[in-house]
């Protein structure tokens, strides 16, 4: 018999012998987190700022691009990488960007869209479904996410539910819920930002969808 059959066989036999009663299901409807009267956008901003993320609130994509241009100057961002066709179109002529695989290792900043914004946690949910893939969400020193209000959801449960609806049984190979810049506290619990992933995370949250 294979290891697979042996392991599964032992588990099955033990479970049948035990015949453990099913525990009573607790209430899965009642709220467990503190509630708020704030708008989803304000709530998202407050929670992301708690973990050192920065949120900018442009009116539309055009204004977002203008803010990125300003940020690029302030933060001395060179070698900006952007793979997403919609964002590339908007950046064209305003902010210089690269998208060649051979330049990837040298990149300093990455601009990506996202799947959802989770207000309760201040999280940005991204996936490998778009042109940004996996690496661009973690490799740059500075990560700029361009998003809009229709992507806001209240809780993580809502984001996971909508993700499944959106991809209908064909999920991307990677989905990541990002909550702030990379950090470590492995040395004496001292917080240091930018361990392996981005040192800075900006979310440009547009009022108008694009």
């Amino acid at each position: 018999m294979s290891s697979r059959e042996n392991i599964l066989g032992r588990l099955k036999k033990a479970a049948e012998k035990r015949n453990a009663p099913t525990a009573a299901q607790p209430d899965f409807e009642a709220p467990i987190y503190l509630q708020t009267d704030k708008s989803l956008a304000d709530w998202f901003q407050e929670n992301l700022e708690l973990v050192a993320g920065k949120v900018l609130r442009p009116k539309n994509l055009q204004e977002a691009v203008a803010l990125i241009k300003q940020l690029a100057a302030e933060e001395n961002l060179e070698r900006i990488f952007c793979s997403d066709p919609v964002l590339q179109q908007a950046l064209k002529g305003q902010v210089a960007f690269q998208n060649d695989a051979e330049d990837f290792i040298q990149l300093q900043a990455g601009i990506t869209p996202c799947e959802f914004l989770v207000a309760h946690l201040g999280s940005v949910m991204v996936s490998s479904a778009g042109a940004s893939g996996r690496r661009l969400h973690v490799f740059p020193e500075t990560h700029l996410v361009v998003a809009h209000k229709n992507q806001l959801v209240a809780h993580l449960d809502d984001a996971l539910e909508q993700l499944q609806q959106k991809y209908n049984g064909n999920l991307p190979s990677m989905v990541t819920n990002i909550t702030g810049p990379s950090r470590t506290a492995d040395i004496e619990k001292t917080l240091v930002m930018g361990m392996h992933g981005p040192k800075k995370l900006f979310v440009l949250l547009c009022d108008e969808p694009f």
């Binding site: 973990v51 793979s83 490998s128 479904a129 042109a131 940004s132 893939g133 996996r134 690496r135 973690v138 999920l171 991307p172 190979s173 990677m174 989905v175 990541t176 819920n177 990002i178 909550t179 702030g180 810049p181 990379s182 950090r183 992933g197």
Partner: peptide, 16 residues
Amino acid sequence: VYNSIVTGPKKTGETD
């Protein structure tokens, strides 16, 4: 900060 779900290797059509 990072909570990831990996459902398999790179899919057809994915970047990396």
